[in-house]
């Protein structure tokens, strides 16, 4: 009697969480996969008409669509932010992992971009990147200094200001810098946690054995940080391949589709004009497969090589 009461009670407590997760987390994955094989569109959303099964039609459409290939390409390009972000975050974590006056202020300052909404970031960085913005002002200043030096030798540098988000050659890099800006404090905290778990004696012992600081870092710290590095680069890879918010708030895919990423394809198919949920879901499935493959690759690349572990 008591036992069955406990069971009922346990499930009663779990019910809200389980129902919500089933409906809004698990069901979308299953039903979303099914949608990819149907012609679901606006008429199905507004009316009570069921969508028709269309087999692989959506996948054919997606594969034949040059925009989808552009999207995949740009998402892969976006992955370049991952190594830069991870190296920098680890470096910053090492830098702030010291007992220095005001160090907590600096840690907090680096975290502020993390708690900044992407919509606010878009307001502020639009000004930074505009034709008259602070980035061009800084570059002009540097070019001016360089020209002062170059004029001694009779040379001259040219620099024409342009809007960094309006130029198809620079827009995606400009947005990547914002991802970097909003990310490095977050990964810094994760790396800081990893660094503080390393016993101080190990680094001390390496120093006593005559290792230089860079040797200590590469031979002691980095190998011990491998699990954290794996976790962080995995999180960062998945976030980069799924980049969407940044694109929507800055360029909506433009100029000339230069920032059109794979999820932008899904988003604009689904909510752009025609509510082509079927095509969008098919593309989403393909992107999920790419995501899985990349996670696997990331895991393989950052895994500890077996011979090395024996030596250590």
């Amino acid at each position: 009697m008591r036992k069955s009461n406990t069971i009922i009670l346990a499930y009663a407590f779990l019910a809200p969480a389980l129902i919500l997760m089933a409906l809004f987390t698990f069901y979308p994955v299953i039903y979303g996969s099914w949608l990819g094989f149907t012609d679901y569109s606006q008429k199905n959303l507004s009316g009570e008409v069921p969508a028709n099964f269309v087999g692989l039609d959506n996948f054919k459409t997606v594969f034949a669509d040059e925009l989808f290939r552009t999207g995949i390409w740009n998402s892969l390009k976006y992955l370049l932010v991952v190594p830069m972000l991870q190296f920098a975050s680890l470096g910053v974590a090492v830098l702030v992992n010291r007992k220095l006056p005001a160090i907590t202020f600096f840690r907090a300052a680096y975290y502020v971009p993390v708690i900044t909404s992407i919509s606010l970031a878009s307001v502020m960085w639009d000004w930074v990147y505009s034709k008259d913005g602070v980035l061009n002002w800084g570059l002009k200043f540097i070019v001016g200094v360089l020209n002062a030096v170059a004029s001694i030798f009779g040379g001259k540098l040219e620099f024409d200001a342009f809007g960094w988000l309006n130029n198809p050659d620079t827009a995606i890099w400009a947005i990547m810098l914002v991802t970097f800006w909003r990310g490095f404090g977050y990964y810094m905290v994760l790396y800081l946690g990893g660094l503080q778990a390393i016993p101080l004696e190990l680094e001390e012992a390496a120093r006593l054995d005559g290792a230089t600081p860079s040797q200590t870092f590469w031979r002691v710290t980095v190998p011990l940080m491998r699990p954290t590095i794996l976790l962080c680069s995995l999180l960062s890879t998945l976030a980069a391949i799924r980049v969407l918010e940044e694109i929507i708030v800055f360029t909506n895919g433009g100029p000339l589709n230069s920032t059109y990423t794979s999820l932008m394809y899904v988003y604009s198919k689904a909510f752009g004009s025609k509510f082509a949920f079927g095509t969008a879901s098919a593309a989403g499935l393909l992107i999920a497969i790419v995501g899985f493959f990349l996670s696997y690759l990331n895991f393989k690349l950052t895994q500890e090589p077996p011979d090395r572990s024996r030596k250590a």
Binding site: L35, L45, V266, A280, G284, L285
Partner: peptide, 11 residues
């Protein structure tokens, strides 16, 4: 893989 869950959640 929840990147496209928003579509079904709207439905």
């Amino acid at each position: 893989p929840s990147e496209t869950s928003f579509i079904v959640n709207v439905i």
